[in-house]
């Protein structure tokens, strides 16, 4: 029997927590996007901001590690590595 595609071809993985919203994990290596929102507590948002990660900023995904390891992104001229769950909190276009 032919497999019916789920959800219009979206990957179904446990990164999709936010009702179909895209996070960094949904970007391919080298792909860029604009940050739509940052979820999480004030401490996380403050630290993210201080590193240049805020709403409206363009980021490029550089790479990710195997087995839910950290993700590396580029913001402006800076490269930043952040944990898997943290990356999940950054919603992109």
């Amino acid at each position: 029997m032919r497999n019916k595609p789920l959800n219009k071809g979206h990957q179904h993985n446990d990164n999709q927590h936010h009702h179909g919203q895209k996070t960094i994990h949904d970007l391919r290596n080298g792909e860029s996007s604009e940050i739509k929102d940052i979820l999480g507590g004030r401490q996380f948002i403050n630290k993210a901001e201080s590193l240049g990660i805020r709403k409206g900023v363009k980021i490029t995904k550089v790479s990710s590690q195997m087995m839910h390891g950290p993700v590396t992104i580029k913001v402006g001229q800076t490269q930043i590595a952040l944990g898997h769950r943290m990356a999940n909190k950054i919603i992109v276009e």
């Binding site: 630290k47 590193l51 950290p70 590396t72 800076t78 490269q79 930043i80 590595a81 952040l82 944990g83 898997h84 769950r85 943290m86």
Partner: peptide, 10 residues
């Protein structure tokens, strides 16, 4: 323990 969140210099 919190996850890693760090700048990677060139």
């Amino acid at each position: 323990s919190p996850e890693i969140f760090v700048e990677i210099p060139p």
